[in-house]
């Protein structure tokens, strides 16, 4: 009985693997990152991550880099007594903190709207759901647009797709820029092969953006051991003030 079930399980796994294999590792699309860890250190001022890969057959390559998801609050200012004050707000959930796009061909020409929406290709197709389901209609759209616009101004959402260059027909490369203000977390780099308006192959690879060394320890310390961090800040300040006084006294 037990062995039968075990055998059945193995068979099922094999069957799934066999069915799945030609699609995922059929090598229509293979891609990798030059570096799957972006380390934020003291001197960090943004970096390029090289994505390279090969395709088999015709098609355009589109890459979408999505940052970790979080909730975002968008606020609208209104004028009260001549002063601009935040008046209305709308919260969105599962908002990628970062979104960058790259394409080997003009994106509007190769990716139809339906495919773009399904695979969330392009900032206009990123799924941004309001936390409050009552938020709908034109108001939702203006806040949604405002969210994207603000993200673009911060350099966290791409405005125009970055180029992907093909070298010798099948080998492609793309430089994905990770800016200095990129939020930390696990990013996913989604690579699509688009042929005749359909996504025929897709691959996803993670990219970790992380504070390392001193910055990471400091941030971690400040959040996990908040009272100790506060105490340290006070002690450092007192000692610094005392040292400064010593310097002054020499004068």
């Amino acid at each position: 009985m037990r062995t039968d079930r075990g055998r059945g399980l193995v068979a099922a796994v094999l069957a799934v693997t066999l069915v799945a294999l030609p699609r995922t590792s059929g090598a229509d699309l293979v891609a990798a990152l030059s570096n799957s860890l972006v380390a934020i250190t003291t001197g960090f001022s943004g970096t390029n991550v090289l994505l390279f890969g090969t395709t088999r057959g015709e098609g355009a390559v589109v890459v979408a880099v999505r940052g970790p998801e979080r909730n975002e609050v968008v606020r609208r200012k209104g004028r009260t007594f001549g002063i601009w004050i935040n008046e209305k707000e709308m919260s969105f959930q599962h908002v990628p903190a970062f979104y960058a796009l790259a394409a080997s061909q003009p994106i509007d020409e190769v990716v139809p709207k339906a495919a773009a929406a399904r695979h969330q290709i392009g900032v206009d197709h990123v799924r941004l759901q309001p936390v409050n389901p009552k938020d709908t209609g034109a108001e939702l759209k203006t806040f949604r647009d405002a969210l994207i616009r603000n993200k673009q101004r911060l350099g966290l959402y791409s405005i125009a797709p970055a180029p992907i260059t093909f070298i010798g027909g099948t080998l492609f490369r793309a430089d994905m820029y990770i800016p200095a203000n990129a939020p930390v977390g696990t990013y996913s780099v989604n690579i699509f092969l688009v042929r005749d308006g359909y996504v025929v192959a897709a691959e996803s690879t993670p990219l970790i953006v992380s504070k390392v060394g001193f910055e990471a320890r400091m941030y971690d310390f400040a959040h996990r051991w908040a009272p100790a961090y506060g105490l340290l800040a006070i002690v450092v300040a007192v000692v610094a003030g005392w040292l400064a006084n010593l310097v002054f006294r020499k004068e």
Partner: peptide, 29 residues
């Protein structure tokens, strides 16, 4: 305030404080 801000909002940036302090000490002289 430093203590309470650290505990409730985690908004005290020691690196920033130190840089300002070094500049401040020299400038004050």
């Amino acid at each position: 305030v430093t203590m309470l801000q650290s505990m409730t909002n985690q908004t005290v940036d020691l690196v920033l404080a130190m840089l300002l302090l070094v500049g401040g000490v020299i400038g004050a002289q």
